[in-house]
């Protein structure tokens, strides 16, 4: 079975800017794949390359084994949920959802039926006669999803689809999207700058920075075993320790990552450090330590005693938790 999407040494340059730079990428059929990175890292350009809105400067792209260079977006069996939803303001919800089928010449009765079914699927039954302007942000997002899914695309592209929603709605949609994706079995490619969103939803994640993929792997791999300082820092804000400090903590002279929640404060054993600050986060308290001049964050679960600022404490971790990243990470 061919890959759902495969990039071979794909680059997209805009003048001197290398938006995407020699990217290799393989997405398996039926996978929920997240592209994660800060803004300007090239993740959205990659999505647009799959959709066909951009053409690669060099390299080769295949979708389900078929070469797509020179194939316009309207001939790719791929659909997109846009960041701003891009609902047609002059059409009602039902006509928006039925747009793709109208273009393909599906009969009126049939596409109305399909549109209503798709609206039911995104929990908006009976909304067909409303105009997009009368819907809330969350509802528009669902309509955009229905409009894309009703065409049964081989790949569904989602460009920061939850970015404009408030926290509660976002968490609810994350859950629903995951359920929907498993039920439909369609390959989802999801672009986000929110690492927790990527970690909670995706089967696999590609972390982007400056037009390149820094690391690809399952959420667990990305989180536990970051390959570079950038990944460690960007995903879950780990403590990134330079070789000198790693050595002081009993490791080899390599860059290392130590997750704040993996550090325990201990009265008797472990390394000594001074508390420089503490901030209450709700479910935990973040305590900042000074270790040989380096800042080290520690997440202290709620209910434990929080040490005073300036106090001297001891801290420790399980040997596995100090993740080594080599000398030039």
């Amino acid at each position: 079975m061919p890959h759902a999407v495969s990039f071979q040494q794909v680059s997209r340059h805009f003048g001197a800017v290398r938006a995407v730079d020699a990217v290799d990428l393989e997405i398996a059929p039926g996978e929920f794949f997240a592209m994660l990175g800060p803004s300007g890292s090239g993740k959205t350009t990659c999505l647009r390359l799959i959709a066909g809105f951009e053409q690669p400067t060099s390299g080769h792209i295949e979708i389900f084994g078929e070469t797509v260079e020179g194939v316009p977006p309207y001939r790719r069996n791929v659909n997109t949920v846009f960041q701003d939803y891009a609902l047609f303001p002059h059409l009602n919800v039902a006509d928006n959802v039925a747009y793709g089928q109208m273009i393909r010449g599906v009969g009126k009765a049939e596409r109305a039926r399909n549109a209503e079914a798709a609206l039911e699927m995104v929990k908006l039954p009976g909304y067909g006669s409303r105009k997009p302007g009368q819907l809330s942000g969350g509802q528009r997002q669902r309509v955009a999803l229905a409009r894309a899914l009703v065409n049964k695309p081989k790949v569904l592209l989602l460009d920061e689809p939850l970015g404009a929603l408030d926290l509660k709605l976002r968490e609810q949609m994350q859950e629903e999207l995951k359920v929907l994706q498993k039920a439909l079995g369609i390959t989802f490619v999801f672009v986000t700058h929110d690492q927790s969103e990527a970690l909670s939803m995706a089967d696999r994640i590609a972390v982007f920075n400056e037009g390149r993929i820094m690391q690809t792997g399952t959420p667990e791999e990305i989180y536990r075993r970051p390959k570079t300082r950038f990944v460690a820092d960007f995903v879950g804000s780990s403590n990134v320790l330079p070789p000198k400090v790693t050595q002081q903590l009993g490791g080899p002279a390599e860059w290392s990552s130590l997750r704040p929640e993996d550090v325990r404060l201990d009265a008797v054993s472990g390394h000594e450090a001074r508390v420089t600050g503490a901030s209450f986060l709700g479910s935990a308290t973040r305590v900042t330590l000074d270790v040989a001049g380096e800042k080290l964050n520690v997440l202290l679960p709620s209910g434990l005693a929080v040490p005073e600022q300036g106090a001297s404490v001891r801290f420790s971790w399980k040997p596995d938790d100090l993740h080594l990243m080599g000398t030039d990470a």
Binding site: E66, R75, R113, K152
Partner: peptide, 30 residues
């Protein structure tokens, strides 16, 4: 539900064909 059946067909759809289709493709390429 018809929508929930899994994706089918190829990754590339046939064009509309005809003059409009080929002109449109030409404009997209250039």
């Amino acid at each position: 539900m018809s929508v929930s059946s899994s994706a089918s067909g190829g990754a590339i759809l046939a064009g509309r064909g005809g003059l409009g289709g080929s002109l449109s493709d030409a404009f997209w390429r250039k």
